[in-house]
Amino acid sequence: MIKRVTFRNPWLPYALLLPQLAVTLIFFIWPAVQALYQSLLVEDAFGLSTEFVWFENFEELFADPLYLDTFWNTVVFSFSVAFASMSLALLLAVMADRTIKGATAYKTLLIWPYAVAPAVAGVLWFFMFNPVVGINAYLLRGLGYDWNHYLDGGDAMILVVIAASWKQISYNFLFFLAGLQAIPRSLIEAAAIDGAGPFKRFWTIIFPLLSPTTFFLLVVNVVYAFFDTFGIIHATTEGGPAGATQILVYKVFSDGFIGLDLGGSAAQSVVLMVIVISLTVVQFRYIERRVEY
């Protein structure tokens, strides 16, 4: 796509593109190529010798039960976050859409958690669930449940899922509300005249018409849970206890940066790259189709 009327200048367009391209090449493309290359190497811990090993790093990776656990954790974590934050956001959006008075005020009061950094969201809930000083842990003790995310892997996972979902509800709420407001009133009125109650109207008319928004949000939420939640894990559980909340992005960081396993970490980076690229392709293919809905 280009304008019909264009300017002609032999060097100006390149000069205009230079800053963007320079940053892209130096800090994006070059490191990515390096990661691809390093994933085929084995380096000893002191960096004295390297050996080209083809796909050995990948074979090791997928034979490692720890890595497979991490993969499974990531899947459980992502889909729990997507499901929890989307269903709550949909409930709130449907209810807020029903209330003509106050909808704008409700919107303001619900969207701000988007601005809270994932790491900060993690710390908020980490404090509330702290077994010694946290109010939620205290309430749960009152109910007879001994909450301790330092020892219990399940508790730790629930903690990070809650923190990650809490932050994402506002985003989903905004998009669901916009989707709901775009549904033609006449359809809903026609159903009401035919005697369909609010529940039936929601499941047979509103929910199906929202499906483009729902699908779009599903992809966005999975991407968010895969890549943007590093801060939540790192600031709270640090992947523990015993790796119960270790997700892929966290493992790349800890293996490469703390464990200094360059080849292994690079191989993990490549796996992640493949995941991002597939998710991006899904997202873009879908967005092109969205026009037809």
């Binding site: 264009t6 100006l12 994006f28 390096q34 990661a35 890549f227 940066f257 970490s265 991002v276």
Partner: peptide, 28 residues
């Protein structure tokens, strides 16, 4: 607004950055 050689190549190069968040290329 400009027509020049490698215009689309530049465009795709920029597009690729969308698929390379920091998280996937930490060490390099």
């Amino acid at each position: 607004y400009f027509d020049f050689p490698f215009r689309m190549a530049c465009f795709w190069l920029i597009f690729i950055t969308l698929m390379l968040p920091v998280e996937v290329r930490i060490l390099p």
